[in-house]
């Protein structure tokens, strides 16, 4: 198996994952129109403003959709029907690609409530993941 691909910690991605490393899930929020956004962007897609803050997410969301890694498509990720890349819609309204811990795909459902957890993948990279919540 080849080395696991990791995000490049530069620019806005570096800032996003930097917060994850200290166990904070933060998304950009426009200072002018208050719109939340993810993935990180230089300017607000709603009003065009370049002013934003990294605001703390509640960490709570719901499963929006998912697939399953039935067939390997990448040398670092083997075929594994127990692995499900998910899309989570956060309470703030943004969506992100992630994965669920301790939840086999057979138990997944759209709308399932989830909350963020963190996985230290390397010494420098921490990925936000999710687990079921009541």
């Amino acid at each position: 198996m080849s080395a696991r691909p990791l995000p490049q910690l530069t620019g806005l991605a570096g800032e996003f994952y930097g917060f994850c490393k200290v166990r904070e899930l933060r998304f950009q929020r426009c200072v002018d129109c208050s719109a939340w956004r993810h993935v990180p962007r230089e300017r607000c897609g709603e009003c065009g403003s370049a002013d934003f803050r990294w605001e703390r997410s509640s960490g709570r969301g719901r499963v929006y959709t998912w697939t399953v890694a039935n067939r390997s498509m990448h040398p670092a990720f083997p075929s594994d029907a127990s692995v499900a890349p998910v899309v989570v819609e956060m309470e703030e309204g943004v969506r992100l690609v992630s994965a669920l811990e301790n939840c086999p795909p057979g138990e997944l459902a759209i709308g399932m409530p989830v909350e963020v957890v963190y996985e230290d993948v390397t010494e420098t990279v921490t990925l936000p993941k999710f687990r079921r919540r009541a």
């Binding site: 995000p7 498509m73 990448h74 890349p85 992630s98 994965a99 990279v125």
Partner: peptide, 26 residues
């Protein structure tokens, strides 16, 4: 491609059938 690299591929979401499967399921 930088978005796929930084936000999709680390979770094993690497190829077109997987991206579009997300839409199909929804």
């Amino acid at each position: 491609g930088a978005i796929a690299r930084d936000y999709y591929i680390p979770y094993g979401l690497t190829a077109p059938p997987q991206w579009y499967a997300l839409l199909a399921r929804r």
